[in-house]
Design a protein around this nucleic acid. Structure first.
Lengths: 223, 223
DNA sequence: GCTCTGACTGAACACGTGTTTAGCATTAAA
DNA sequence: TTTAATGCTAAACACGTGTTCAGTCAGAGC
């Protein structure tokens, strides 16, 4: 949780205000608005960071560091692939972080990219454990599946949010809760039983593209 | 397919140029760039449309009309939920359309919204037929599932595209092909067998939220 | 012929942006 | 005390934006 120092530098105040602004309004937020939030002149922002782009980069670093710290602190709780999201949604102090990540995802920025990479990495581990515990079915390509699961979960969340933007963009936990309230059931149902009654589609595809994806941990096709 | 008139009005030329620009560069594209594309002065754009917003609105209408037309023409081919996407991806002339839709999705604009609504509507129909034909398993909430499947498919596509933006943004079919090449297998696999080996997660959720979503077409929970 | 209307343009306007500049304090060093 | 440096600001600059304005040109109607 890492509480901020009681008396932060002006520089840090500016940077933190920027993180919040960027999270709420996207990276188009003006330097002037950030300066106002930090109770400072626009010129001082440039004075400290050189340019808006460098400020952006420093915010990226900050958020990534924060995420890393949060992961380390909660490493035990992260028993499922949903862990991070729930964790973020639960603690309101992480709200700006998640908002920032979503903006960066929308933007194709480096924070979104590394965040996704981390989630995929984690998902690979979780599914591996799940398979060993007999809770998760093996896949023809574990990495591709982990990647797809992460991308679809975050992509669905993003789409849902841009389609139904919340009244108060600061209420990240409310956003995630709202999302889960409409999507959790169909998602779990899909993960539990799939949608197709036959293997026809899958087998046809495998016939059409016979290259076995170098992943070997597969169930026998007759299953 | 609806070929454009051989000698389009200047007004139409401007509007079509705007659709292409918006699709390629997003709705932040400048009036000046659109005017240049149409071989016309920026003032004329305003002269014909009143403002950039009204031009935007008229482009929205145009694209929606085009989509409606395309759907009517290919109504027979649309045998699966993937139909529209494949259809769009196949014909290069639809490329600006799909690009425009994706931009509008990213933007939360009305085109994206109605496009999604239409896809959900279609998906409900397809799954209904699939269930009757014994190809698709019934869901506890058909509407919610159709919505989730559409949102996750498009959301994953969007996320993939912003994360790995194609070199040439005009090659929409290449984009979709690239997306399918990494996501099709895990998706079909998920749709075929799910990921969980047990119904535990689903049953726990149903116990926790016992309200039966007014949809009755469900398989017996003992299945 | 004239006039009027509509397509069309070059130049300018108003405004918001990121950034720069000159200068003001306040503090620490010499 | 003087000097230098640092934190900080008001004002302006340069630029890109959407839009307006005054005016030109071509064609139709009389």
């Amino acid at each position: 949780m890492r509480s901020a120092p009681a008396d932060p530098t002006t520089r840090e105040r500016i940077r933190d205000a920027a993180v919040v602004r960027f999270a709420r309004d996207g990276f188009g937020a003006s330097v002037r608005s950030i300066a106002t939030d930090a109770g400072v002149s626009p010129a001082l922002v440039i004075h400290h960071f050189g340019s808006k782009d460098e400020l952006h980069a420093e915010c990226d670093e900050r958020v990534l560091a924060e995420i890393r710290a949060a992961k380390n602190e909660t490493i035990d709780e992260l028993a499922s692939g949903q862990g991070i999201l729930h964790r973020f949604a639960a603690a309101d102090e992480y709200a700006p972080m998640l908002g920032y990540v979503l903006r960066s995802l929308q933007d194709g920025g480096p924070v979104g990219r590394t965040f996704i990479e981390q989630m995929i990495e984690d998902a690979v581990g979780y599914t591996k454990h799940g398979i060993e515990a007999g809770l998760i079915k093996p896949s023809l390509d574990e990495t591709a599946r982990a990647r797809y699961l992460v991308l679809s979960a975050l992509g669905t969340l993003m789409l849902e949010l841009t389609l139904n933007p919340p009244k108060d963009p600061r209420d990240i936990s409310g956003m995630v809760r709202g999302f889960l309230s409409t999507s959790y059931l169909p998602m779990i149902e899909l993960y539990t039983q799939g949608v197709f009654t036959t293997r026809r589609m899958l087998d046809e595809y495998l016939l059409y593209v016979p290259d076995p994806p170098q992943d070997a941990a597969t169930e026998p096709p007759s299953a």
